[in-house]
């Protein structure tokens, strides 16, 4: 016992205060590829963040940035197109505008975090329960979801816990392309959850089927089977990206509750 306490004290506090403080990210981390200087369409809902597009783009039209807060409520927000014209010497002559799907993009994690805290405290009675379902993932997304419970990311700071039963859950966090064999289990889990509830699709696979796409065994993204409230890009999304998306979904749940009580 003494050893444990000694070890605990010596280790000190390791939890990082993301999003109150900026996440410490190594300069080598590969986040969102930026395409804002050339006509290219990038779908962050399909992207596995391999970086090949930037390597292939010798004029740096596509660059890799360190942004990762890409979660959104609208699937169309993940498709970005930038317009450009090229000179003969492969430099850009004129830059067009960047087109996005409609709807706002909620990237400021601090604001999202603040709002989510308020929702959890005031509306949800200080706790929010998530039921996670792997509907066919490669387990990469689960590796990062499990990391949310480690002392560094510690999602319980927000009053958020992972629940064993869907009957106690407010949020369904789904990974993977939905396989033919998991469709029914996913639907049953969703139906067992009380209203109001939100569904979050995690990772390229959860959003669009990712690298697996649609085939005889894979139905594709979660929204093929369930209504999705928030999409979190990544392959897998890093833990902070997951926190950002989950907090965004808390906001969405707050809206639903408000709507329900207003009636």
């Amino acid at each position: 016992m003494f050893k444990i306490i000694q070890k605990t004290i010596r280790t000190g506090i390791v939890t990082k205060a993301y999003p109150a403080e900026l996440a410490h990210i190594s300069e080598h981390f590969r986040g969102r590829p930026s395409n804002d200087s050339r006509e290219v369409t990038v779908d962050y809902g399909l992207c596995v963040f391999c970086g090949l597009c930037a390597e292939a783009s010798s004029d740096k039209a596509v660059r890799i940035t360190q942004e990762f807060e890409l979660a959104t409520k609208n699937r169309r927000n993940l498709v970005l197109t930038a317009e450009y014209t090229l000179n003969a010497d492969r430099t850009h002559r004129q830059l067009g505008t960047v087109r996005r799907g409609s709807g706002s993009v909620e990237t400021d994690a601090k604001i999202v975090g603040q709002k989510a805290r308020e929702t959890i405290h005031k509306v949800l009675g200080r706790s929010l329960a998530i039921r996670e379902v792997d509907a066919g993932s490669c387990n990469g997304c689960e590796v990062e979801i499990v990391a949310l419970n480690n002392p560094i990311h510690d999602i319980e700071r927000f009053g958020i816990q992972f629940a064993a039963s869907p009957r106690h859950a407010d949020m369904l966090l789904v990974t993977g392309p939905v396989t033919r064999n998991m469709e029914l289990a996913l639907l049953k889990t969703y139906r067992a959850m009380p209203e109001p509830k939100v569904v979050v699709a995690v990772g390229a696979c959860g959003i669009s089927g990712g690298i697996f796409g649609e085939n005889y065994a894979s139905l594709g993204g979660v929204d093929k089977v369930l209504p999705v409230d928030v999409y979190i890009p990544g392959c897998p999304p890093r833990p902070q990206a997951l926190i950002h998306g989950i907090l965004l979904a808390v906001g969405r749940l707050g809206e639903k509750l408000y709507h329900e009580r207003g009636r």
Partner: peptide, 17 residues
């Protein structure tokens, strides 16, 4: 095999890189 997603078959369709 709940997460069977056609991986071996898919390998036959993708360019090697």
């Amino acid at each position: 095999f709940y997460t069977h997603k056609g991986t071996e078959k898919l390998f036959e369709k993708l360019p090697i890189p």
